[in-house]
Computed example of a mutant assay.
Amino acid sequence: MKEFIQSLPKVELHLHIEGTLEPELMFELAKRNKVDIPFNSVTEVRDAYNFHNLQSFLDIYFQGANVLIHEQDFFELTWAYLLRCKEDNVLHTEVFFDPQAHTERGISFDTVINGIHRALVKAATELNISSKLIMCFLRHLDEVSAFETLAQAQTHKDKIIAVGLDSTEIGNPAGKFERVFNQALEQGFLTVAHAGEEGAASNIYEALNLLKITRIDHGVRCTDDNELVKQLVTERTPLTVCPLSNIKLKVFERMEQHNIVSLLRKGVCVTINSDDPAYFGGYMTDNFLAVNNALPMNKTEIGQFTLNAIEASFISQSEKQRLTIATQSYIDQHQ
Rank of each mutant, 00 (worst) to 15 (best):
203 N>G: 13
330 Y>A: 02
98 D>H: 10
23 P>K: 10
181 F>P: 00
81 Y>K: 05
303 G>C: 10
315 I>F: 07
238 P>F: 06
172 N>K: 01
299 K>Q: 14
256 E>Q: 13
45 V>A: 05
88 D>N: 12
307 L>H: 00
223 T>F: 13
298 N>V: 11
61 Y>A: 03
79 W>A: 03
142 D>G: 00
274 S>H: 06
211 L>C: 05
129 I>Y: 02
45 V>H: 05
178 E>A: 13
67 V>K: 03
117 H>W: 14
254 R>T: 13
320 K>N: 03
162 A>H: 03
307 L>C: 04
116 I>L: 08
68 L>D: 02
183 Q>C: 01
109 F>A: 00
34 K>I: 09
252 F>P: 08
298 N>L: 13
28 E>C: 10
49 Y>W: 06
19 G>D: 05
332 D>E: 15
274 S>P: 07
13 L>Q: 00
132 K>N: 13
120 L>W: 04
142 D>Y: 00
131 S>T: 10
112 V>S: 00
78 T>G: 01
327 T>V: 11
191 T>H: 09
176 K>G: 00
173 P>F: 04
163 V>N: 01
255 M>V: 05
94 E>K: 02
226 N>Y: 13
92 H>Y: 10
91 L>I: 14
316 S>F: 06
56 S>Q: 09
300 T>Y: 13
208 L>A: 05
329 S>G: 08
248 K>R: 14
217 D>G: 04
213 I>N: 00
161 I>F: 12
171 G>W: 03
250 K>D: 13
38 P>K: 08
217 D>Q: 12
89 N>T: 11
333 Q>V: 11
105 R>G: 01
29 L>H: 01
235 E>T: 11
318 S>C: 10
52 H>R: 11
141 L>H: 06
75 F>M: 08
172 N>F: 06
258 H>F: 02
57 F>I: 06
281 G>S: 07
335 Q>S: 13
141 L>W: 03
43 T>P: 05
308 N>E: 03
124 A>P: 08
330 Y>G: 01
29 L>Y: 01
302 I>F: 09
232 L>N: 03
256 E>I: 14
136 C>H: 03
268 V>C: 12
13 L>N: 01
218 H>P: 02
139 R>I: 05
129 I>M: 04
261 V>Q: 03
258 H>N: 03
176 K>I: 02
125 T>H: 12
162 A>G: 04
321 Q>C: 11
232 L>D: 03
299 K>R: 15
140 H>V: 12
287 N>Q: 02
270 V>Y: 02
9 P>Q: 05
33 N>E: 07
19 G>T: 01
102 H>T: 03
98 D>L: 15
284 M>N: 07
310 I>F: 01
104 E>N: 15
221 R>W: 09
69 I>H: 04
151 A>Y: 10
88 D>Y: 07
16 H>Q: 06
231 Q>N: 14
268 V>N: 07
316 S>M: 08
26 M>F: 09
331 I>A: 04
152 Q>Y: 10
130 S>F: 08
271 T>G: 00
151 A>E: 14
249 L>K: 04
227 E>R: 14
310 I>K: 02
89 N>M: 13
118 R>N: 12
119 A>K: 08
191 T>Q: 11
63 Q>H: 10
330 Y>T: 03
26 M>P: 06
215 R>Q: 04
255 M>L: 12
273 N>S: 05
26 M>V: 15
48 A>F: 07
95 V>K: 02
44 E>L: 07
